[in-house]
Structure formats: C-alpha cells, structure tokens
Amino acid sequence: MRVGIVGAGTMGRVHAAAYRRIGVEGLAAYDVDPVKLADFASEEGAEPFTDYPKMLAEVDVVDVCAPTFAHQQLAEQAFAAGRDVILEKPLALSVAQGEQILRAARESGRRLFVAMVVRFFPQYRRARELVSRGELGRIGVVRLKRVSFPPAAAWFRDPAKSGGMPVDLMIHDLDYARWLLGGPRRVFARMSRGDRASALEHVQATLAYDDGAMVFVEGGWAYPPGYFRTSLDIAGDKGLIEWSSDQPVPLDTLLPKDAPPPKLGLPMAGLEENPYETELRHALSAFDSGEPFAVAPQEALEALRLAIAVRESALSESVVEVA
C-alpha cells in the first residue's frame, strides 16, 4: 500500500517516522512549500511531488498532515481521485465543512480515518476499558488536562485557520470524554488570554451530563517553552483512576535544561510503542481489511461540534446546550 503524505511539517514528520517503524515503504510527499518539500523528501526518504494531482495518481492512501484550514480541499480532491484518506485532527474548522468532507467520502465510496491519536494512547485506552467494564461503577467526575506551550507555526494562532485551542488541542480530551460517557447535555467554559502578541490561551470547560456526571477539561497553550502536561482522573462510585504525565515513565530522559525546547509538544515519551504508530497501523490495516475504524468519521465530527460549543461558551461566558 503506497502512502502519500500531504504537509511536510511537524505532523508530516511524525507520521513519516511512524510509517518507517511499522515497515511502510515508498512514501510519497506533497507540500505547497517546495523548500520544505525538498528537505522532507531527502530527510524522510519520500518521493517529492510538487503537484498534488500527480501524487494522487501514484498512491493508494493520502495522509493529510497539512494545516486544518486546508483539510477540506485536500481531502475532497483525494476522494475525487478515488483515494482513501487519513486526515489529521481536527476534522475541519466548522461542522458544515466537516459534514461536507464526510459526504465527499460517502459519495466517492472511499474511506476516511480521522487521526484522533489519544484513542491510541495505552493509558487512555486502559482507563476506558475499566470504565466500560463497569469497574468504577457510575462515573461522577472526570478531569482531563492537556496543557502545552504555544505552538510555533503562526497559523495555529489564527482561530480562522486552526479553530483556536479548543478545536485544535482540547478536541482530544473532548473526544475522549465522548468516548467514555457519550455526549454531554451542556457546556460552560472560561477562556484566559495573554496579551495579543503572546498567543497564550487557556480554557477551562465543564461538560454536564443528564445523569449528574460532569467532566472538567483543561486545555491550553500557555505554558512556558518545553512543558507539556496531560492527565486524567476518573472517579466513579465504585472506583477511581488517576494518571498524570508527571508520573514516572518506563524511560525518562534528563537532558540539559537549557537545551532548546521542541517546536511542538507531543506527549509520547517513555511509552512502549509510539501511539502514532499504533494509530497508523490500525488505519492501514482497516483500509486493507475493510474493517471499521476505531474512530468513526461521525465521532470526529461530533468531537468537533463539541469543541466549537466549548469555544462558543468560552467567548460568550454563557452556558451552551449541546445535546
């Protein structure tokens, strides 16, 4: 199966490395920026294409790692060319855009996998297993945290291009909350921002469910350079799960603190298998076998809808009914 990566940026490289480790050969790559494309091609060993339709003609699967504002057009072109698509999260910038992508997939008869990678993190999977087996009893309060320093690429800072922090980053935990408990009834969120130049953004959101369960989600791009923290805390009437990225990991690296921090925070240190590998292996094998994906396109759409509701609540400081 030949894969063409679209977008030779951070995620393009993360995916390329994962493909290499899971034994996918003959990568193709396309990027609007010819310099980035050339660097990527030589460093990742991919065949560069400066023309998207030409690459589409050569590959079986298109893996869109381009910025979110370009998702719809790139995905629709790929479906029109009869290709299956892996699409980095978030699905799109609006629910309408997302619905159009889903429709394009249906109409072309091709398949869409939205890369909600948190579903492939072993601690998040294991926690959900316990919850779905009823081992925690009735779930009362869930706390989910995902806080990072601001991403370096300028387009992230423009909500018209990235959707803003709730849609770009918090969506991981909003999807996870839905995966655990389904959709909430209402959301309330508060946003904090630094001054215009700083790009700092932090959101605290409460999701409330009909049965009295609540999920508190914290997300942010406001930490100092180099810090990325995630955690989950799931309390039920029969049990409790706590996990935090502050905990010891199987392998920790202590490098000089003054080493320059990475450009983008990715919470994958110390795991047995990089979750991006698990994710992409799953997608390729599902394309191959025709089996359903662990994340249905509709679920990615619902997560987007919820993220937009959180953003709306944060901006208006009012309760948004969602179900």
């Binding site: 009362g140 706390r143 508190f216 309390a235 049990g239 400081e317």
Partner: peptide
C-alpha cells in the same frame, strides 16, 4: 451533593476553578 465543579471569574479577571467533590474512595 457529593460532587461539584465551580468555575469562577475573579474581579481581577482571572478565571479560577474549584473541584469540590467527594470523589476519592
């Protein structure tokens, strides 16, 4: 009640939350 999540806005503009739940076993 045995669970509560509060989201406050302080008069200085800071957003501050409180998890006041009896959620530990």
């Amino acid at each position: 009640d045995t669970a509560g999540v509060l989201q406050l806005r302080l008069q200085n503009g800071v957003a501050a939350s409180i998890d006041a739940s009896w959620s530990r076993p």
